[in-house]
Simulated scan of single mutants.
Amino acid sequence: MAKYDQQWYRDFYGRYLTSFVMIIFLLLNVLFFVSQMILGNRLTDSGALITDNVYYGGQLYRLITATFLHADISHIVSNMIGLFFIGGLIEISVGHIGFALIYLMSGIGGNLVSVYYENFKHIERYSIGASGGVFGLIGALLVLTAYERIRSAREGKPVGSLLYRGLFVVVFMVASGFAEGGVNNTAHIGGLIMGMIVCTALVLIRGSKIKPMQL
């Protein structure tokens, strides 16, 4: 059987359907976006990440709700593509609970870093989006790729260049964010770092139970 025949594609993309936690998060994001379109600014204003409301108003729930809200169609589509393809790989590798921890803690952690940075710099910002969580998944992908390189080297298997390509993608995405206006790069970088930290902890705790990523 040729590697890239119809059966291969069915098996390759069909595995994402086993990542049911990722699918739940994806559906929640879509549900929130539909609610935003129905309710208008009421839902967005009540759940967006606003530094003063969190830092001085004690509205900590905004650290979570902001990760499920989006500005427009292109915003949610780009984030959901990242969530589906990267999140599916992560969940297959680290498991359902591990994936949920990485995604949620990256989104919350990225927003928390953003709040403290903006308060320190006296920046007033109104931000929404799942980008912090998605960047956390990218951070986890880098950690898992590095772990695979180490494991392959120990077993005498060929070591690929995926890690370097992943690092290039991260640098490109962060640089693109700085080049564009209205992008909360602090939350992106905070989410990226949090994803790497949580995934590293999972690798250290679970070890050989981490499944190799089938890219």
Rank of each mutant, 00 (worst) to 15 (best):
A2V: 08
K3F: 14
K3I: 14
D5E: 07
Q7K: 13
W8H: 10
W8L: 03
Y9D: 01
Y9I: 05
R10I: 00
R10Y: 01
D11F: 00
D11K: 06
F12K: 06
F12A: 01
L17W: 01
L17G: 02
T18Q: 10
T18S: 07
F20M: 05
L26G: 02
L27W: 01
V30H: 07
L31A: 15
F33M: 10
F33S: 03
V34Y: 09
Q36E: 13
M37A: 12
I38Y: 08
G40A: 12
G40H: 06
G40V: 03
G40R: 09
R42D: 15
R42L: 12
R42H: 13
T44Q: 12
D45H: 11
A48I: 05
I50S: 11
T51E: 05
T51A: 03
D52Q: 14
N53F: 08
N53P: 01
V54N: 07
Q59T: 01
R62M: 11
R62C: 04
T65A: 06
A66P: 05
T67R: 04
F68Q: 04
H70E: 08
D72G: 04
D72V: 03
V77E: 02
V77W: 03
V77M: 10
V77R: 03
S78T: 13
N79H: 13
G82Q: 08
L83N: 04
F85W: 06
I86F: 06
G88I: 01
L89W: 01
E91Q: 12
E91Y: 01
I92T: 10
S93L: 03
S93G: 03
I97C: 04
Y103K: 02
M105K: 06
S106M: 09
G107I: 02
I108S: 09
G109V: 04
G109L: 14
G110W: 09
V113R: 04
S114N: 12
S114K: 06
Y116P: 07
H122G: 09
H122R: 14
Y126I: 13
I128Q: 08
I128N: 03
S131D: 14
S131R: 05
V134S: 01
F135Q: 12
I138G: 05
I138R: 01
G139A: 09
A140P: 05
L141C: 05
L142M: 12
A146V: 13
Y147L: 08
E148A: 14
E148F: 11
E148P: 08
S152N: 15
R154E: 14
K157M: 12
K157N: 13
P158W: 07
G160T: 10
L163D: 07
L163A: 11
Y164A: 12
R165Y: 15
L167D: 06
F172H: 07
F172D: 07
F172T: 15
M173N: 02
A175Q: 09
S176N: 13
S176G: 15
A179Q: 08
A179R: 02
E180T: 11
E180C: 11
A187S: 15
G190D: 05
G191S: 07
L192V: 09
M194C: 14
G195R: 09
G195E: 08
I197S: 07
A201Q: 11
L202K: 06
V203Q: 06
I205V: 15
S208E: 15
K209C: 02
M213P: 03
